[in-house]
Amino acid sequence: MESRILKPILGVYLALFILFLYGPFIVLGILSFQAGPDGGPQFPIIEWSTYWYRHLFGMTEVTRVAPLHLREALFRSLTLAFMTMVTATVLGVISAQAFRRRFRGSGVVFYLIVLGMMVPGVLTGLGISLLSSELGISRSWWGTAFVAHVVYTFPFAFLVMLAIFNRFDPSVEEASWSLGVSPIRTFRKVTLPIVFPGVLSSMLFAFTLSYDEFPRTLFASGSDLTLPRTIYATFAVEIHPNIFAFGVLTTLFSFALLTVFGILLYLSTRRAKKIARQEDI
């Protein structure tokens, strides 16, 4: 049987493929422990040290390697990601709720929303900065960049919620109405708790996509740097392992977010799993 040969070959291939995906990360992680301040961003490791991590937090003496101004950038990025998450998720939920009933023009509206994730960031960014300068609005991370981030993340939240509502049984809402509970309160008390795993996923998408967003931010955020723009600024100059150390930390932060999300999702779907178990018995 050919698949007996093919399967191990493809298995090995997948291992190499995963190495290809993660290899650069691993190398970057190793080099972040390079000796400082004279160790360069390449092999061999002169001496293992945490110098570049301390450098990041300003705990080392001043050298020719300029410190990255991460604190303000981190604050801006987190705030921006949070604002984006809330706005995109709210828009995504109410828009998907609207799509539960077909309305005139729903096809056009669907494509209008999805366009937000299809148009390259460089175009959205350019367009928003052109428009804002024409209207005399100064660019800022909390204004122009924020609206650009929502344009990008809202479609993700929308699609997630659309998928969730597709599997939602509307009779529980009708049951609530027939018990004398108003539609708005029904949405809050019944609908929202049931679709909460979807809301959580929408929030995760919106937060992480915004936190890492770069091309839109580059054009639309004005002079204040966000974290990705701080990293981008180092592209043009000589790089030092401090940027690697930062890469390790921000990756760990992303993983922490994923873990928190995983735990929350697990907690909110444990009930659903219980159903499955009960029905097995």
Partner: peptide
């Protein structure tokens, strides 16, 4: 609208609120 009518409705699929206990289902309304 249905919530102003005060007419009870029992669904074929029961349509219980999955996010609530038995008691909460009954006190909800």
């Amino acid at each position: 609208p249905p919530h102003e009518r005060g007419i009870g409705f029992v669904f074929q699929n029961f349509a219980l609120f999955p996010n609530m206990s038995v008691l909460q289902n009954v006190t909800y309304g």
